[in-house]
Amino acid sequence: MNRNIVLCGVGGQGILLSAKIIASAAELTGFEVTTHEIHGMAQRGGSVTAQIRYGRNVHSPLILEGQADVLASLEACEALRFGHYLRPGGLAVVSSQRLIPVTVSTGQARYPENLDKRLQQAFPRLILRDFCALASGLGDVRMSNTIMLGALAAELAEITTETWNEAIKLCLKPAFLNSNLAAFQAGAKA
């Protein structure tokens, strides 16, 4: 059995760090792991995606559309953009944060209305929360990504909570460790 996870969001939200933590947790559990990142223009406001595959027999680093077990997004409309990667019965974990692209501000495009409804229709299994607000409540808005990890962790039952904590410890600077462990816990309860 291989696990396929797609993360998405907008440049600067910490998607790549989340991918690193998931990969590290899978590696610590004893799986073969591969990740793939699309980040060529990540800091310049573009869409960012990361893919993580782990299991016993992993070849390609890329996930075929319709085969992701988990789709996690830090931006509401990006979840729809990559929604077709999710397999039937897969879990969508979505932050309700909305980031208005310049194409909308300059009138070239419109940001979708009734987004919550669209998400609920698109994803029968959906965790939709304002990770940004939760992170602000914990003192640092940049921890949205760690909260998102906490929210998806239960779906990847083969990885224990201790392993998640260990992976977070490996991937973060000590100064940010305790707050992010708390953020992970908050996500798991969200």
Binding site: V10, M41, R44, G45, G46, S47, C77, E78, L80, R81, G83, H84, P101, V102, T103, V104, Q108, A109, R110, Y111, P112, R118, Q121, A122
Partner: peptide, 13 residues
Amino acid sequence: LPSAADLPTRPPI
């Protein structure tokens, strides 16, 4: 997804 048809693009800027 059909609901992704009219999403605004996010080109690098």
